[in-house]
Each structure stands twice: as structure tokens, then as C-alpha cells.
Design a protein around this nucleic acid. Structure first.
Lengths: 143, 143
DNA sequence: AAGTAATAGATGTAATTGCAACTAGTTTTT
DNA sequence: AAAAACTAGTTGCAATTACATCTATTACTT
């Protein structure tokens, strides 16, 4: 590890942290301005919608989202309270439970998407050529 | 905006969010395992140490760190309580205040750095060639 | 110079997150 | 088959963060 490569590593690292934080903040801001809930909510809804029958084990959802489990419990609590998702008990494993997306949840996700998409374009993708986006995606995939 | 480029944008975006979150979490974990405070503390200390005379206006520090201001107030409260930094009133602008790094703060930063450096290498930089790191840094600089 | 607007930073309070412990159920070991 | 170890998900409580508001001071306007 030379002095120089060490320097390079630190710079790239700082950029990564900073770039993501900045872009994410702006995107979240755009969503908030339209009175939409935060991005994690969108992520949950998306994962559920993609899953067969619109439902996933709490655990499986947890693995997709990068959240500590207790944290997800409460996120689902809130979303359930809003009527976006619901829990179903699991017959196979009585400890566990499923989380299912409801109509209202699907509708919300659909309304959020165009805003989200535009925000991604504006604050992130728009700043790169498609070549660069590909490169970036490939590089980041290693982490 | 074609369907395909839209898809690409979404993928790259997801990777950015995910990659940063994953890597950051691991690095924070490494620090925590050595009983060090979270990364923001390090950042504050570093900014202060770099600043002339080891002090910065609250505002200036705030601009460097990407934090809401009320949030920084409390972060400094905590760090002050640990004797790492202190506040000094500002003569030029009596509303404002300076934040200064103390000996203990410098020492802490010095002890943290090797651990932090190793963690960056392990969870981030080590996964790329130096060419790639350069590319990544350049690309991310646009955000 | 008086009045209004803007800025620096702090504070009260609510929402969210993190951590440890807990309950209930399942799997493994002996 | 009983005991021990493990897993799924929840809950209590403390720490942190967000949001709105407040105070003191400075800058702008007329």
C-alpha cells in the first residue's frame, strides 16, 4: 500500500459517501415536496409487488432491504397503519409472518414512480452518458 | 428517454444506494468493534484539524458536513461533553460561534485513522484496481 | 436612523433508529 | 423424547434525527 494509492482510496471513498448522500437527499426532497413518504416505503412496496402473489416473508423482505430487523418491524407497523400493506400469519412456520401489499399500496407506488423516476434522472442519471452509467453500475456492483 | 436508458438509470441508481450503504455499514462496524465513535465524529475532527488554527465557524463546518444545522448543534454538544472539541464565541459576528478541536480530539482522530484506513481498504478500495478507483472517483465527483 | 428581512445557532417536541432483551416456535443434539 | 441451541419477529427503552420555532444579532431598505 503506497502513500499514493492510499490517498487515492481515501478520495474515492469520500466521493462515494458524499455523492450518494447528496443525490439521495435531493431525490428524497423531491418526493417529500409532492407529499410522498420516504424512499424506504417505496422500496418495500416495490419488493412486495415483485414478489409472487405480492407477498414476502418478513425475513425475506428484511434481506432485500438493508435494514436491521427490528427496524423493519416498525416500518411495517407504520405502513400497515396507513393501509398500504398487511401481515399474514405463516402456516409453515408459526413464528414467522408474511407481509402483503394491498391495493392502496400498489396505487401509492404507481403514483410515486414518475416522480421518483424524474428525480433520479434529474439528480443522478442526467449527469452521465449511458456509457458512464454502465461503467458506474458495473463498478458499484462489486460492493 | 427511452425505455432502455431508463432501465439503465434505475439500475445504476439502485447500485449506488446499495453499494454505499453496504460499504459504509461495514466500515462503521469495524470502527465500532474497536469502540470508536461513529464516522461523523471523525469527519468533524478531520475538518477541524485541517482548518487554520484548528477552528471553524459552526456554519462553515455545517457546510462541509452534509448535515442539517440543528443536527450539528447537538453533535457538537456531545463531542464537547467528551472533551474533544470546544466552542468559542465569535467577536466579529456575535450571533455565531467557533468550534475548536482540543488535544483529546486530535488524539482520538489519530487513533481512529489506522482502523478507518484499513476498513476502507478492506471493504471498498481493495475491490478495485487503481485505475478503477480513479474512474469511480471521477464519475462520482459529478454529483 | 427606524423598520423589516435575513442569518447564526439553540431548543422543544415528535418521529425514527439502535440495542438488548423477550416470546414463541423450530431444529439439533444427545 | 427431553434439553439445548437457534431462528423469527416483537417490544422496551435510550440515543439520534427531523421539523418547527425561538432568540439574538446583522444586513438591507427606505
Amino acid at each position: 500500500m503506497t502513500q499514493k494509492s492510499q490517498q487515492l482510496a481515501a478520495t474515492a471513498w469520500a466521493r462515494l459517501i458524499r455523492a450518494q448522500r447528496t443525490a439521495l437527499e435531493k431525490v428524497e426532497q423531491d418526493l417529500k415536496e409532492e407529499d410522498f413518504p420516504p424512499l424506504v416505503w417505496y422500496d418495500v412496496l416495490l419488493e412486495l409487488e415483485r414478489a409472487p402473489e405480492g407477498m414476502l416473508r418478513h425475513r425475506a423482505l428484511n434481506d432485500e432491504m438493508l435494514l436491521p430487523k427490528h427496524n423493519l418491524t416498525r416500518l411495517i407497523d407504520r405502513m400497515e397503519k396507513q393501509g398500504l400493506v398487511c401481515r399474514k400469519s405463516c402456516n409453515i412456520d408459526k413464528r414467522g409472518s408474511f407481509v402483503c401489499i394491498l391495493e392502496k399500496g400498489k396505487k401509492l407506488r404507481n403514483k410515486m414512480w414518475p416522480v421518483y423516476e424524474k428525480a433520479i434522472e434529474r439528480h443522478f442519471a442526467g449527469k452521465f452518458s449511458s456509457n458512464e452509467l454502465n461503467m458506474l453500475a458495473d463498478l458499484l456492483a462489486r460492493l
